[in-house]
Simulated assay, not measured.
Amino acid sequence: MSDVNVLEAVVRTEFGKGAARRTRRAGNVPAVLYGHQSDPQHLAVNAQEFAAILRAHGTNAVLNLVIDGTPQLALTKSVVVHPIRRYIEHADLLIVKRGEKVTADVNIVVTGDAAAGTLVTQEATTVSIEAEALNIPESIEVSVEGAEEGTQITAADLSLPKGVELAVDPETLIVNVITAPVVEDPEADTTETSEAAEGDDAAEADAESAE
């Protein structure tokens, strides 16, 4: 087994919210390993080591788990992060085998600058792809350099690495280039408002004089 992304794991025998909290207090992340028609395994992995792997390889990281001494290849399928304190609350891991193809959501990174006077809207931040478990790209780049108004980039237009295939409708809209909205000068509005107010004040003064 490769020594890349090796992560020690122990089998959890306690379940429920209370057990999960105790696992996290001990510096671990509660995780569930499933797939290949096997019974789900409830595990605990070191929180700092797991977080370091995710930072280095993204949320589709392939893990070389060592479960109580037994090696097992797994894909990080989903990660739940606390919305405020930002620690990892839970992870779902999927059993994989070398050479096996899996489906994963990969981040889309937009690069370049579109033509002047346009606005680039990213309609999708991820795209679902199918690839071998050990060859899932961390991200897929799409360039909008010089793109004119009306340019639309769909999933079919993405440049995918060798061995990677789309797992979504090819017509899925990824990027849309539109005309940039005109921003009105707020100072002009303020001036017009002030002038209107001064006019109202003058009219009121004339009315009072007439009375």
Rank of each mutant, 00 (worst) to 15 (best):
A116M: 08
A116H: 08
A116E: 12
G117E: 01
G117K: 00
T118R: 00
T118P: 03
T118M: 03
T118H: 04
T118A: 03
L119A: 02
L119K: 05
L119E: 00
L119G: 01
V120R: 04
V120T: 01
V120A: 00
V120H: 00
T121V: 15
T121N: 15
T121M: 14
Q122C: 13
Q122E: 12
E123R: 15
A124M: 15
A124L: 15
A124P: 13
T125W: 15
T125I: 15
T125L: 15
T126F: 07
T126R: 14
T126K: 10
T126A: 10
V127W: 04
V127F: 09
V127P: 05
V127L: 15
V127I: 11
S128N: 13
S128P: 08
S128L: 11
I129V: 10
I129H: 05
E130V: 09
E130N: 05
E130F: 07
A131E: 02
A131H: 02
E132L: 05
E132H: 07
E132V: 11
E132D: 13
A133W: 06
A133F: 10
A133R: 08
L134M: 12
L134T: 08
L134E: 10
L134K: 10
N135M: 09
I136A: 04
I136F: 03
I136C: 03
I136N: 00
I136D: 04
I136T: 07
I136V: 05
P137L: 00
P137E: 02
P137T: 00
E138F: 10
E138P: 14
E138H: 12
E138A: 13
S139Y: 06
S139N: 10
I140D: 01
I140N: 01
E141R: 02
E141G: 03
V142N: 00
V142L: 02
V142M: 03
V142E: 02
V144S: 05
V144E: 01
V144A: 01
E145M: 06
E145F: 06
E145Y: 09
E145K: 08
E145L: 10
E145P: 06
G146W: 06
G146T: 03
G146A: 06
A147M: 03
A147C: 04
E148C: 10
E148P: 06
E148I: 07
E148Y: 09
E148Q: 11
E148T: 10
E148D: 11
E149P: 02
E149D: 09
E149A: 12
E149M: 09
G150C: 07
G150M: 06
G150H: 07
G150Q: 06
G150P: 04
T151S: 14
T151Y: 07
Q152L: 08
Q152W: 06
I153N: 08
I153P: 03
T154E: 01
T154C: 08
A155Q: 05
A155E: 01
A155V: 00
A155H: 02
A156H: 07
A156W: 05
A156K: 02
A156S: 13
A156E: 10
D157A: 05
D157E: 08
D157Y: 06
D157N: 09
L158G: 00
L158T: 03
L158R: 04
L158V: 03
S159C: 13
S159T: 15
S159V: 15
S159E: 12
L160F: 12
L160Q: 14
L160T: 11
L160M: 08
L160V: 13
L160R: 11
P161V: 07
P161H: 14
K162M: 15
K162Y: 13
V164G: 06
V164T: 06
E165T: 12
E165K: 13
E165D: 11
